[in-house]
Design a protein around this nucleic acid. Structure first.
Lengths: 142, 142
DNA sequence: TTCCTTGCAAACGTTTTGCATCGGT
DNA sequence: ACCGATGCAAAACGTTTGCAAGGAA
């Protein structure tokens, strides 16, 4: 497996401090989804002086390089996660928990729907919103 | 079927010019999806002097009243359509065409996925992006 | 040394809000 | 006449961009 530096280089990006650090953050939390602001905050907490504009620029570059993925769960901000096999999301509207899932049967039917309407399917967004039944979340029930 | 005035009244909203006009726009194009700006433009073209802020306020109220539905197809702006039976969308990324579809089998599997992950499903977003094979769209192929 | 990268501040587009005025009921 | 609804302008919000200074190769 390639190192972070190699990944950046092969994307045509110089290996700089902000880029390495941001990539590290994603790799150390492979199941987490971060907003640009959260990344910025994490860097600040680690005494890394990186401007918010740079965070946005780096996130865009990493996405373009196929190293991370951008999600639009809510209207207000974008969320980024490290690139993995394709999956969709299940989000708890009470505690914010995000679960990744992959359901080949649904994907197949999406293809079928598309061809029925004479479309060539390229991508899709499928996000399920609900309430998780975890103890931690249930405790906050009103 | 209730008139527009009755719908507004039963939502606790006064029957005003902007509200009636906006509701009319949606009803006269039941298959169209409009942004706030498009509504604003349509009103201006019809020599209706309605402020953009009012358009946003009315759209929010109509959504709250269950008369229209808000969609987030792209990051930049929200789209509104008149409320119908539940459906999802298929969008052509080349010509912007939006097709509505409803697939009970997929919906059933979404329920199944949710319960597998111990979630009580409340809503979902499913939007398929592709390229439609309509003549009009194909003409624009590069 | 080159030219990519960064930080800062200003610009951006959409949406929201404050406030004085207007208008249904 | 009351109180909600409106128009306008300004603010808010996440994100992008211009520019001069900094840093990897």
């Amino acid at each position: 497996m390639a190192s972070n530096s190699e990944k950046l280089k092969s994307a045509g990006l110089k290996v700089t401090h902000p880029r390495s650090k941001i990539l590290e953050i994603f790799q150390s939390s492979p199941d987490n989804h971060f907003s640009a602001d959260e990344i910025h905050l994490k860097l600040a907490n680690a005494n890394e002086n990186v401007g918010l504009a740079t965070v946005y620029r780096v996130l865009t570059q990493l996405e373009l390089a196929g190293l991370i993925e951008k999600n639009q769960f809510n209207k207000t901000q974008s969320n980024y996660e490290i690139k993995k096999e394709h999956h969709d999301h299940l989000i708890c509207t009470r505690c914010g928990k995000i679960v990744e899932f992959n359901n080949p049967a649904i994907e197949k039917m999406q293809e079928k729907v598309s061809s029925e309407y004479n479309f060539r399917l390229t991508t899709h967004v499928m996000t399920l919103f609900g309430e998780c039944l975890d103890d931690k979340c249930q405790e906050n029930k009103d």
